[in-house]
Computed example of a mutant assay.
Amino acid sequence: MTQGICEILWLRKLLLGLGFKPKDTMKLFCDNKLARDIADNPVQHDRTKHVEVDRHFIKEKLEKKIVSIPFVESEGQLADVLTHAVCSRKFGNSLDKLGMCDIYAPT
């Protein structure tokens, strides 16, 4: 999640340099409820000591309303087709949703 937020901040800075000011918070869709709960929870637990710095970084960006982390079901996570092995049906559906086409398909 921290890496994703860093990428969003980089894109935001790039867009600002090009003269485009985002009107809303930038969204990082997440299918991990536990990660979202840890980012929102103000109480530090023993099992999250190794993510303390990341958690504070994420919390700061959420509080400043630079980034929002809406929940998306795993089935709706379009990026999975780029990072995981998925069945051909899900692969085809994800490519359609991403607007990608098969250049080898007959016309």
Rank of each mutant, 00 (worst) to 15 (best):
E73M: 08
H56S: 05
G17V: 03
D31M: 10
G4P: 03
D24M: 05
C30A: 07
M26Q: 12
P22M: 05
K64E: 13
K90R: 15
A39D: 08
G4R: 01
D31W: 11
Q3P: 01
K27L: 15
L16G: 00
Q3G: 15
Q44F: 09
K21A: 13
K61N: 11
P42T: 12
V86P: 05
D54G: 14
T83N: 09
V72Q: 07
A39M: 08
V67T: 03
I103G: 02
K27M: 14
L82Y: 08
G17Y: 02
N41T: 07
K64W: 04
K23Q: 13
T25D: 04
R12G: 00
F71N: 07
M1G: 14
T107Y: 08
T25F: 01
K61G: 01
I38N: 09
L15Y: 08
E52A: 14
Q77P: 00
P106R: 12
Q77L: 12
V53E: 12
D37F: 05
L34C: 10
A85Y: 03
I69V: 15
I8S: 02
H56C: 06
W10V: 07
K49L: 13
W10F: 11
D96G: 02
C101F: 13
F91G: 05
V81F: 05
G99L: 08
R36S: 11
F20L: 11
E73A: 15
M1K: 09
R36A: 11
H84G: 00
N93M: 13
C30D: 06
L95T: 02
G17A: 05
R12W: 02
T2M: 02
S88K: 12
A79V: 13
Y104W: 04
H45D: 01
P42K: 13
R36I: 15
K23I: 02
E60F: 03
H56Y: 04
L15P: 02
L82K: 03
D80I: 07
R55L: 03
A39R: 04
C6R: 12
E73N: 13
G4S: 14
Q3S: 11
R47C: 10
R55C: 03
S74R: 07
I66L: 14
F91M: 10
W10A: 11
F29S: 05
L15G: 01
K65V: 04
N41I: 08
I66W: 09
I69C: 08
C30K: 06
R89W: 03
M26E: 05
I66D: 13
M100E: 05
I5Y: 02
Q3Y: 10
K33H: 09
K61W: 04
L14T: 10
I58G: 02
D40T: 08
I103S: 07
G19T: 07
K59W: 03
T2N: 05
A35I: 10
F20P: 00
Q3W: 06
S94W: 02
R47F: 13
R47G: 02
I8R: 01
K97G: 06
K97E: 14
I38Q: 15
R12K: 11
K33T: 15
E7W: 01
V43Q: 13
G92I: 01
L78T: 09
K90A: 11
I58A: 03
G99W: 10
K21R: 13
P106A: 10
L9M: 15
L18A: 14
L82G: 01
E63L: 05
V72S: 06
A35V: 15
L82R: 01
K13F: 02
L15V: 03
T2C: 07
E52G: 00
M1I: 11
A85Q: 04
A79H: 02
P106L: 10
A39Y: 04
C87E: 10
K23D: 09
